[in-house]
């Protein structure tokens, strides 16, 4: 087995006097999906922010494909972010430019990772556009005209087009209609299985985590209170907070 593509050790982030996350450690290998659950303010987005190179740790480190990300700054950091990491956020407008076309959003990322040649780029973007099952003929339409579910698909296409080592998903289906949510989850699950891309999924929805993640971290007040194989943590929760979380789930 090769080494982890994402290594997080003793990760600590302080926002002034408040603690964003405290001594969080985990590894994600190729083909694995790690879930992070916890209520808002638990630090899960802070951890994801450090993995996505948006935030700088106050302590500890993040390694991407064996490379320490702490010293990587400026253009090099942007390049690492474009090549090594794909990000899908709850709010599509944070990752996409809504006024430009779906194809443009996808191509933009390819250009940022150093792809050249109009036809090669267009072909590749088209392939990924089709792979995320977006409607044919809408590739040149502005993302602003797309529905919420379609915007998530554009985000996924943009994130995966450069074949990153790690895909980070921050509440990827939150706020979508239930039926749209299910189809986006199926797409993510299918793409993960086909490509073997390592993923970190942050969600407050245990059903999303159960479907996607093989391993799970439960966070509270910036700390990991419980971790393990997903079905073990969810069927035999040991920490009082995890027990509360699992018992609070509304069964459908």
């Amino acid at each position: 087995m090769s080494g982890p593509v994402l290594e997080v050790r003793e990760l600590t982030v302080r926002y002034g006097g408040t603690l964003g996350c405290d001594a969080v450690s985990f590894d994600v290998h190729e083909g694995e999906v790690l879930g992070i659950v916890g209520e808002s303010g638990s630090g899960k987005s802070t951890v994801l922010g450090c993995c996505g190179l948006d935030l700088h740790p106050s302590g500890g480190w993040v390694r991407l494909s064996g490379m320490d990300t702490a010293g990587v700054v400026g253009a090099q950091r942007r390049r690492l972010r474009n090549e090594g990491i794909g990000i899908v956020r709850q709010a599509a407008h944070e990752e996409l430019r809504l006024e430009i076309s779906a194809g443009g959003n996808i191509v933009e990322r390819l250009l940022a990772t150093g792809y050249r040649g109009f036809q090669a780029i267009r072909d590749r973007a088209e392939r990924v556009y089709t792979e995320v099952e977006l409607p044919a003929g809408r590739m040149d339409a502005a993302v602003a005209t797309f529905s919420g579910g379609m915007r998530q698909r554009v985000q996924i296409a943009r994130a995966l087009v450069s074949e990153p080592a790690v895909l980070l998903l921050d509440e990827p289906t939150t706020g979508l209609d239930v039926s749209v949510q299910a189809r986006i989850l199926d797409l993510i699950r299918g793409l993960q299985r086909r490509t073997g891309v390592a993923m970190v999924v942050v969600s407050h929805d245990l059903a999303v985590i159960r479907m996607l993640a093989d391993q799970l971290l439960v966070m509270r007040d910036g700390r990991v209170v419980e971790s393990g194989v997903t079905d073990r943590v969810l069927s035999d929760p040991r920490h009082p907070y995890t027990q509360l979380l699992v018992s609070s789930r509304l069964e459908v």
């Binding site: 393990g228 194989v229 079905d231 073990r232 069927s235 035999d236 040991r238």
Partner: peptide
């Protein structure tokens, strides 16, 4: 069974 499968610690 769940202990054997590892669903329970």
């Amino acid at each position: 069974l769940r202990c054997v499968y590892g669903s329970y610690t």
